[in-house]
Design a protein around this nucleic acid. Structure first.
Lengths: 155, 155
DNA sequence: TAGAACGCTGGAGCGCACTCCAAGCAAGCG
DNA sequence: CGCTTGCTTGGAGTGCGCTCCAGCGTTCTA
């Protein structure tokens, strides 16, 4: 067991990625070309190949002619990467996480720490954005009032 | 009146910028050097000059020797810019907003629209981040459980 | 009056995250 | 068979947001 965590995303709890990404094939016959994955994830084929080059992806299966054949677990991984990207996490850090996953079970605590730190970052980003929202709302009220004043001036 | 909006930030409602930025001089004797502004805003002097070059700042007063002397209203503007930057708004859009402010009162509705769109963006960024937070929390729980399992294995 | 500290400018350079290119191979089709 | 479509590679290029540099002037302190 403990097959270096490919769990979680399998459970049908997900429902909020950017692209539709509904049409997955069942495990066993899950072999997607790069352009299919591009369509499913919203990334370009270029980016997918680049992710592989920099070590952000595990080694992807190949067809007998050498073409990439992505599997469901690769889509799961890309979904996680997409989420982490939304947090503003630098690609280098995601590569670090990918390395930890590849390194095996003894990196669990390090992975845990990395995710926990990321979680803290996300919380403060949310707080920042809410602060900005407050400023924005004040400005918007100002302009709404100004608009009304201009309108009544014209009467 | 309607002096192209330098209001809002004057009111003491602010309290959540990154740097301390407490020590402002009263209006009238508010002439800050570029390095003072750098210290107050957390930006570098390079960046401040660059903001000016690209049209993100209004024209800054100069001393008799040609050095920049920032005023409180410039700090207010920089505070707003800082907030907008946190939202991920591209610099080009902030420049656009700055142009609208410089253009005068007849751009009120356009400014209003820009801010309203930005507000929508911020709301969806927050939603995205909360989605990511959910994923992160599931992963973190997974690793916490795995850690406990490993610990009990060792008994 | 020397030297350090600070500021000025135009323009070049950098790091990140892609993005694209050229040249070539393999499969499918009329 | 030739043509199109899709994929392969290493390496070069792009856009953004800074970041730094050289060469110079001014101001302050000893």
């Amino acid at each position: 067991m403990t097959e270096t965590e490919t769990e979680t995303t399998g459970a049908g709890a997900d429902s909020c990625a950017g692209p539709p990404q509904g049409n997955r094939r069942p495990d066993g016959e899950d072999r997607y070309t790069i352009s299919e994955v591009a369509a499913l994830t919203g990334l370009t084929a270029h980016t997918l190949r680049w992710y592989e080059r920099i070590g952000l992806m595990p080694h992807i299966d190949r067809s007998h002619t050498g073409q990439r054949r992505y599997r469901n677990r690769d889509l799961d991984w890309l979904a996680l990467v997409g989420k982490l990207r939304l947090t503003g996490m630098p690609v280098a850090d995601m590569v670090r996480y990918a390395e930890l996953v590849r390194a095996g079970d003894h990196t669990y605590t390090e992975r845990f720490e990395l995710l926990r730190r990321t979680r803290e970052d996300v919380l403060s980003r949310i707080a920042e954005l809410q602060g900005t929202l407050a400023v924005l709302d004040r400005k918007i009220d100002f302009y709404a009032d100004a608009g009304r004043a201009l309108a009544s001036e014209r009467t």
